[in-house]
Write a protein that binds this DNA or RNA. Sequence first.
DNA 1: AAGGTACTTAACTTGACAGCTAACTAACCA
DNA 2: TGGTTAGTTAGCTGTCAAGTTAAGTACCTT
Lengths: 117, 117
Amino acid sequence: MAMIPDRLDATFTALADPTRRAIVARLAAGDATVNELAAPFSMSLPGISKHLKVLERCGLISRTRHAQFRPCHLRAEALDEALGWIEENRRIWAERFDKLDAHLRGLQQSAPDRRRS
Amino acid sequence: MAMIPDRLDATFTALADPTRRAIVARLAAGDATVNELAAPFSMSLPGISKHLKVLERCGLISRTRHAQFRPCHLRAEALDEALGWIEENRRIWAERFDKLDAHLRGLQQSAPDRRRS
DNA sequence: AAGGTACTTAACTTGACAGCTAACTAACCA
DNA sequence: TGGTTAGTTAGCTGTCAAGTTAAGTACCTT
């Protein structure tokens, strides 16, 4: 299923660039052609083309062909993969405190009159 | 509030490296010293030290000092920043289809008997 | 005070990546 | 057929990041 060996590496690398994040954000609102995507930036078209290649390689976008246009499409599944990794670790982190709370409650219950002894 | 100019860039860059992601995952389970973090890797200690610096610079970890140990602590808020960016764009992406659905329902409602005409 | 433990800093090599211009391909248009 | 539009590929440059070893700092132990 993986398009390249370390997809998660590639996905986070892709998202690390502000131009690419802006492109992803633009595509979240709807498909767009290369020139449309390039318009907001003061960057050469080949530069944008390279960024799109990076996004495509990690599966964040897919491209089709209509006449001389190559509309880009955001693949939310790829976004979900990165989302999943962060959420998972966020969850594990949060669990520590739940366990600590439970532990403290347990202590309190097994020695409820400690303060008065 | 930002620790460095483009924190989000730095955070995604930090998460792009598999060694650093493994360190983050380890720290999600609880604080650890540098040597504890280094143990699972076949990498020199200075290498690990550099990775920790990257994680610290973007705010993903904080470090204190106890005797000669420097325990590392995961800062979930930094994780939340990256999480927030992806979630937001994921949400915008999903909304398109909600709107499309609504639009299609609207069309169907304004011309409910088209098929029978 | 001497030695060990836990790191960090310095200095270097290597490789990847962002950006550019110039040149190419592919489809449409007149 | 010749030009225009849309985009990619090639080739270059400068910067930055990952890894290394060797040396330094800081604290504890005896």
